[in-house]
Write a protein that binds this DNA or RNA. Structure first.
Length: 425
RNA sequence: GGAGAGGUGGCUGAGUGGUCGAAAGCGCCGGUUUGCUAAACCGGUGAAGGGGUCAAACCCUUCCGCAGGUUCAAAUCCUGUCCUCUCCGCCA
């Protein structure tokens, strides 16, 4: 949710954001401004009458106490009328309030000035590349062939037991997953993050707080009986950890790292994107979340990005860093980097991390504030998060990039003390 | 799942239907005293929203888990709901 004051002061900036992000109708801003007018008008009207009622009650009090009932009676009759009025005005005030809120929820966050304007993935800027693509004197295999060859991942039985996109990891495959989780969490720990194990299901209010609801509701699995949602990312429970709280400025920045499985329905996905580990309904991820002072959030975005890149580099995986353009960025972000790792067996890049600044957008929705050092008015914190990292595509690229002619796979050196083996096959 | 108790400001914790946004304490901020620190003393200190102002001051409304209801008037009474705690049952 945007700051209503910002909308009033800079309607053109909001219009531009909606255009650049292609998020929402062109008349959104005008509808929001009109709704805001309505809302404030009915609020003022309501408050005036409430004041009259309060004053009347204040007069009645003493009269009743002194037993002057006859003097109080006309006043009481007057309040009856006021209460009628209040009831109807309250109703319209609430309608206006709701109308305003629902329009506001449709307005996307404003992109940062450093973000390239563009509509398609082609407009994303490649700002950094690291590592050399591995070269082979044989045809490198895709990870699903390698996984089958070494019996690391069982997609078929996963489909039998649950459905497509829910694989079993078996033997060294399972072990590799566990090693990666441990490795990523240790890196996060070294970078000063507090480790956290959040709930894997969340309620509706939490979904609204981070913006999954109502925007991306269809992407979540729902536990209907209890009105709970399976988390699509640890971002949701971890960010909502501080929902409705006023933090101490001295506590900032707060940094959490959480490993969780993530559940996504991925409605509408198809084609080669869904092959193997490329896109799953359930996958593991270590997520990094920061709550920071508004003045520092863009510094923290870079630090967060470095934390994610450090993990990719440690595994020796060639990658590129993209600065996402306005149209490819998402509704709630102001600035977002994607990290894409080279997949030798598929001859393509795979996204393994997405690092975003939300400024106060989530904080306002989730009501996460802090009290400034000087004791001034409370302000909304800025929230950021990034994957550090998502596992399946990392597993895929480790297998593919490190395969040898005989089909065996070497494990990146830093990971070996976690896996307990240095080669598969 | 059954029975009982309770949910009040950053925290602890009082509160008789009517000057209660709410005592007191802690914490925090400012000041006095003071070699330094601490202590002591004095004063201040909730949130959201609307109006007002160059900015303040200031004015108003709402908020005592949440949602309704009774009443001229609700933190206080009634109903529902959520959560916490204790006991019982079930159980990894």
């Amino acid at each position: 949710m945007l700051d209503p004051q910002f909308l009033r002061d800079h309607p053109d900036a909001v219009r531009k954001a909606i255009r650049d992000k292609k998020a929402g109708e062109s008349d959104l801003v005008d509808r929001a401004l009109a709704a805001d007018e309505n809302r404030r008008a009915s609020l003022t009207e309501l408050q005036t009458i409430q004041q009259q009622l309060n004053e009347a009650s204040k007069q009645i009090g003493p009269l009743m106490k002194e037993g002057k009932r006859d003097e109080a009676t006309p006043l009481i009759e007057q309040t009856a009328e006021l209460k009628d009025q209040i009831k109807t005005i309250e109703e319209t005030a609430r309608e206006h309030e709701e109308a305003f809120n629902s329009v506001m929820l449709e307005i996307p966050n404003i992109p940062h000035e450093s973000v390239p304007v563009g509509m398609t993935p082609d407009d994303n800027a490649i700002v950094f590349e690291w590592g050399d693509k591995p070269s082979f004197d044989f045809e490198p295999k895709p990870h699903w062939d390698l996984a089958a060859q070494h019996n690391l991942i069982d997609f078929e039985r996963g489909a039998k037991v649950t459905g497509a996109g829910f694989p079993f990891y078996v033997g060294k495959g399972a072990r590799l997953q566990r090693a990666l989780i441990q490795f990523f969490l240790d890196l996060a720990d070294e970078a000063g993050y507090t480790e956290m194990q959040p709930p894997l299901v969340i309620n509706e209010i939490s979904g609204i707080g981070t913006g999954q609801i109502p925007d991306k509701e269809g992407q979540m699995y729902v536990a209907n009986l209890d009105d709970l949602y399976l988390i699509p990312t640890a971002e949701v429970p971890v960010t909502n950890f501080h929902r409705d709280e006023i933090l101490d400025a001295a506590e900032l920045p707060i940094k959490y790292a959480a490993y969780t499985p993530c559940f996504r329905r991925e409605a509408g996905s198809y084609g080669k994107d869904v092959r193997g580990l490329n896109r799953l309904h359930q996958f593991d991820k270590v997520e990094l979340v920061r709550f920071v002072h508004p003045d520092e959030s863009y510094d923290h975005l870079e630090h967060l990005r470095e934390d994610a890149e450090r993990a990719v580099q440690a595994l020796g995986l060639p990658y590129k860093r993209l600065l996402m353009c306005t149209g490819d960025m998402g509704f709630t972000q102001t600035k977002k980097y994607d990290l894409e790792v080279w997949s030798a067996g598929q001859d393509r890049w795979l996204e393994v991390s997405s690092i975003s600044n939300f400024e106060g957008f989530q904080a306002r929705r989730a009501n996460i504030r802090f009290r400034p050092e000087d004791g001034g008015k409370t302000q909304f914190v800025h929230t950021l998060n990034g994957s550090g990292l998502a596992l399946p595509r990392i597993v895929a690229t480790i297998l593919e990039n490190n395969q040898r002619a005989d089909g065996s796979i070497t494990i990146p050196e830093p990971l070996q003390r976690y896996t307990g083996f240095d080669v598969i096959g």
